[in-house]
């Protein structure tokens, strides 16, 4: 179950020995082929846990804000092109006092979902600081995705979609706006990550590279003039 038992490491696959064996997990019903570590980052109360719960259980836990304590570890197995991909998701606390703990787990992560709250300008302004942290602590080839959460709260929006897009472009990371409440783009964010990671590991030399940015562009719901929200 732990990453140490992950059947496939990136190195192996690059050496051309990408014969993934079916791994058996401790609890029955939970077979998977590859496991990846994904980490959720961002300021306090931008909705990291809500995004995760929406993805994991398909429900929105609104109402009271429950601050995550330290980091929280959960698994979810998803299907990617007939392959069972297990996402091991680290949900981190946004509060400053937990930074040192989260730093210790950055380097294990293969993908990072960086969130801000579109109704909270400081959370957007801090994204640059977060990206610097990521640069300092995470693996060099980590997959990063920027998410502007709470897109359902149009009336209270203070960060324009274009601003998010601009920032994402500057850092060369994919971007979309999500809503844990309506579920918009949530599944997509995790699936795109899973796809990208899966392609990276299982890619054959002659196979075309998976285009994460294009995939997202083609799939995502825009929260613009023509959308439902």
């Amino acid at each position: 179950m732990s990453i140490r038992k992950a059947p496939l490491t990136r190195k192996q696959s690059r050496n051309g020995t990408s014969k993934y064996v079916l791994e058996r997990c401790a609890s029955i019903n939970e077979y998977y082929d590859i496991a990846f570590k994904v980490m959720l980052l961002g300021d306090s109360s931008v909705g990291k846990t809500c995004i995760l719960l929406r993805f994991k259980d398909g429900a929105f836990v609104g109402g009271n804000f429950i601050a995550t304590v330290g980091i929280d570890f959960r698994n979810k197995v998803v299907d990617v092109d007939n392959l069972k991909v297990k996402l091991q998701i680290w949900d981190t606390a946004g509060q400053e006092r937990f930074r040192s703990v989260t730093h210790a787990y950055y380097r294990d992560a293969q993908a990072l979902l960086l969130l801000y709250d579109i109704t909270n300008k400081p959370s957007f302004d801090n994204i640059r600081a977060w990206l610097n942290e990521v640069h300092d602590y995470a693996q060099k080839d980590v997959v990063i995705m920027l998410l502007g959460n709470k897109s359902d709260m149009a009336a209270e929006r203070v960060v324009k979609t274009e601003d998010g897009e601009k920032l994402a472009k500057e850092y060369g990371v994919p971007f979309m706006e999500t809503s844990a409440k309506t579920g918009i783009n949530v599944e997509l964010a995790f699936l795109a990550i899973a796809k990208e990671l899966k392609h990276r590991t299982t890619q054959q030399p002659n196979e075309p590279k998976f285009q994460l940015l294009d995939y997202i562009e083609s799939q995502k719901h825009k929260t613009g003039c023509c959308s439902l929200v």
Binding site: V69, I71, R74
Partner: peptide
């Protein structure tokens, strides 16, 4: 927050 998953905190 510890109800599901595994928590890890200083």
């Amino acid at each position: 927050s510890f109800r599901e998953g595994e928590g890890w905190t200083p």
